[in-house]
Nucleic acid binder design. Structure first.
Lengths: 234, 234
DNA sequence: CTTCAGATTATCGTATACACTTTCGAATAC
DNA sequence: GTATTCGAAAGTGTATACGATAATCTGAAG
């Protein structure tokens, strides 16, 4: 018994499967920053050889989701505070552009999809599951995709994913990282094709997310240190 | 005799070496869009196994520099016109942010390095070598690095590299893609810490680059079609 | 002369083998 | 009891092997 492998060999080959699985685990914070990613272990779980796992890890490394130290293996990335600020700054810059585009070209169909997504968020948000974290990020990714610029969309996807790591490291344990109201405000601004308003809403939203994530970093760090000390003092 | 391999095993291992080599060949337009990248051939040239080549190709694929078709192998990417516009839009967005940052924190030392770089460009530009193409791009990458946001810098690096492909595909044969004057203007604006002026200069510069690259696409496309037809009519 | 089936070759996808590096533990010395 | 060294175990880096897929060639039929 080595794996819950799947038969559908599908496209992109098996490394995509491993990549997607790991990625989701990271984004839903099932794997936490600093966790070790041993190639053999992952290979067993997914039913593939290390060759495949290695490709997946390399890809995750390129996206900044895993650290990769020579001869020492892979771990879930632990962005420093300074990296965290860099990521948020880049994210702000990219998402502004997304909204500027969207305000000009958004269709009723797009608005509908966004509303549907927020509805999903509300449903998942109530039961606090890992899905809520993922859906909050996917709202932003959906926006980027609807904007119709593939390059922008890929970068947004990347920074949003990395924000999961930041939240996991510095955020409060159960802070709903994206208040759904703020997502709704963005949709409302888009419905009126009001680019200025939409960008303001996004700015406000991202600043709020940043604050929720990083302002608590001091207290949380202390809590962490304390709990670590507790552990060693027992 | 399989390779001009190097002995210094250094860090990051050999795949970095292959990656860097291929990347430079692409950016200097020694390898042209559409060219086939056979794993064995590359492996022989660099003196490594396919395993290593594969890792390098995967990385280049993630950056959008090579296409990777299942069971058919790798080729230098051929961005479509629509992708080209996407890339330029993302580039504009990112580089504006770079200049906004730089205008606030640029040091005299930074200005000096930028001036040095432009001097290099002038020297290389006169003899029209492949180095001129590379240096023109590296000016933008240097700006991004000096801005001090690693995430932004990586994305700028990526879009600038992909612009080499666009130039190779759609640009005029010997258009010096970045007029050095325009680079100088950006430096001048930065020296005065004038963010508005710097961004305007960059906007103007990138618009000019876009035009030089893409406005000629019609004529070049015709030339291509004609030459293709010639080929089939012989 | 063109076309198409079959064979042949080239190339890719993945697993495995082996050497090398790091890690961990136990035995020894102090 | 602490420090140190040595050796085994775990894990990574890379090459190679082999089956599978695609590209190319060949020859015969139309």
């Amino acid at each position: 018994m080595t794996a819950p492998a799947r038969k559908t060999k599908s496209a992109g080959s098996r490394s995509d499967f491993v990549y997607a699985g790991l990625r989701r685990a990271i984004i839903e914070q099932a794997l936490m920053p600093g966790d070790k990613l041993t190639e053999d272990v992952i290979g067993d779980r997914f039913g593939v050889s290390r060759t495949i796992v290695r490709a997946a890890l390399a890809r995750l490394h390129a996206e900044g989701l895993v650290d990769l130290q020579p001869n020492k293996g892979a771990t879930i990335a632990q962005p420093s505070l300074s990296e965290a600020y860099d990521i948020f700054e880049a994210r702000m810059c990219l998402e502004r552009q997304v909204l500027a585009r969207l305000a000009e070209k958004v269709t009723d169909r797009d608005i509908q999809r966004l509303e549907q997504h927020v509805a999903q968020e509300m449903k998942a948000g109530s039961q606090d599951g890992p899905a809520a974290i993922r859906l909050a990020g996917e709202f932003h990714i959906l926006l980027a995709q609807l904007a119709g610029n593939g390059v922008l969309a890929r970068y947004v996807d990347e920074v949003v994913s990395r924000c999961s790591l930041i939240l996991a490291l510095y955020g409060r344990p159960h802070s709903s990282d994206c208040s759904i109201n703020e997502h709704q405000q963005i949709i409302d601004a888009l419905r009126e094709r009001n680019s200025r308003l939409a960008i303001d809403a996004m700015d406000h939203h991202l600043r709020a997310v940043t604050d929720r994530a990083l302002l608590s970093s001091n207290t949380d760090k202390q809590r962490d240190i304390r709990s670590i000390l507790d552990h060693y003092a027992s």
